[in-house]
Design a protein around this nucleic acid. Sequence first.
DNA 1: TGGGATTTGTACGTATGTATA
DNA 2: TTATACATACGTACAAATCCC
Lengths: 243, 243
Amino acid sequence: MTTIDASPLRGQERPGPRRQEVVTGIKDYILRNRLKPGDLLPTETELCEAVGASRSSVREAVKILSALDIVEVRHGHGTFVGRMSLNALVESLAFRGLLSGEEDHHVLGQVVDVRQTLEQGLAAEIIAVLDGDHRAQLSALVDQMEDLAAQDKDFLEVDRAFHVKLMEPLGNDLILQLTEAFWQVQAIVAPTLRTEPEHRVITAQRHRAIVDAVTAGDPAVLRAAVAEHYAPIRESIARAVQG
Amino acid sequence: MTTIDASPLRGQERPGPRRQEVVTGIKDYILRNRLKPGDLLPTETELCEAVGASRSSVREAVKILSALDIVEVRHGHGTFVGRMSLNALVESLAFRGLLSGEEDHHVLGQVVDVRQTLEQGLAAEIIAVLDGDHRAQLSALVDQMEDLAAQDKDFLEVDRAFHVKLMEPLGNDLILQLTEAFWQVQAIVAPTLRTEPEHRVITAQRHRAIVDAVTAGDPAVLRAAVAEHYAPIRESIARAVQG
DNA sequence: TGGGATTTGTACGTATGTATA
DNA sequence: TTATACATACGTACAAATCCC
């Protein structure tokens, strides 16, 4: 059977490997055996004897790897190679945003900057690759926004779907996941400044303008529409800093 | 002293809180007490009695938080509020890149896409805010590149410093850290395709072109220079996919 | 210089909850 | 339903690192 081989018995009296060695040992095991997301890893007990560490150390190492979504633990089932999401980025950034406090929203402002930069920077590519089908789906999402706005309801999920759908045709999974990750961070951190009902109608209009800009096919117009879209949240942040 | 209060004794026979509750309990403690990065947290023993969990559970929870750089543990000293870096993003993304394998460099390609998008998308802002001092520093870094290239030496660190310095005047910490994070991911994943010595001279030239474009003050020229800068790595990826 | 106190790191044993067959 | 395999949780003891006197 394949061994973990984290410490190839160098030196002589080695009482026990450290937790970090177990972490790299497990990562090396995954790489060496060419495991893919979803593949099963050895049980904790097997990992213990393979790496020559105690259960505690192995468990703490596995917890670190699960926090990074490199492995995924299912109670009573086993440990598997993780889906490699960007949850770690979301958790880390979101907590940083919450920590920066209610009065100081500079982290939230920076997240908005990044989101706007990505969407504006990809304006030309989006227009180039976005086909009629995608445009129709975006338009349908805006329709939903308008309906929900008319009923004085939130449309957080629709908003998320819109920004993801906008990036989808690019065919870049990383950009897609970053888009969703930063959206999530904003959704977690922003609640301190609550969206007012009348803003929803305006927000829906801004999204409609983005779809129109994509349809028009002018990157400069799309960039302007994106800037307009983020204007309200920027104003909210500016107001929160003052008052 | 303040308690953690993760599980306010709801129900009756509660054998023990789950690890996730301990995680949120510690996060809440940090937020509730308005702790800042570097501040000291209670000892593990204190956390145990505060949250009513065993030391093993508390330790595993702390390990999760330390993986996200929300807390930082120093052996024999204590546990502190973390620096909130993007190390979690780097580790997660880098491992994903390594896992995607030597033959399939699509993750690396996506990272390059994001880096290029950020630099191109911020071209106008960079030109607007970059002053003579920063320009001189960028120019000095390119000088170093040229010197090292002439000596057939790597200039990885100088390259990293250049791309960070380019973003610095924007005054957005998040963009700065993302720049460095994606650079690190590329540095970890790219070694499978080794940079050839003759490429270094060209690489230095491409960085010189970026400085020149910034000096010229034309965003379109800067965007073109950035595209040229990433062209070699893109070709390397394309070659690796085929051969 | 050193030694004791504090705090995290590691190890081991046992019992329990959970999913699968 | 029972049995098995696995992760989860708790508790204790000791080792290692850091700090302070």
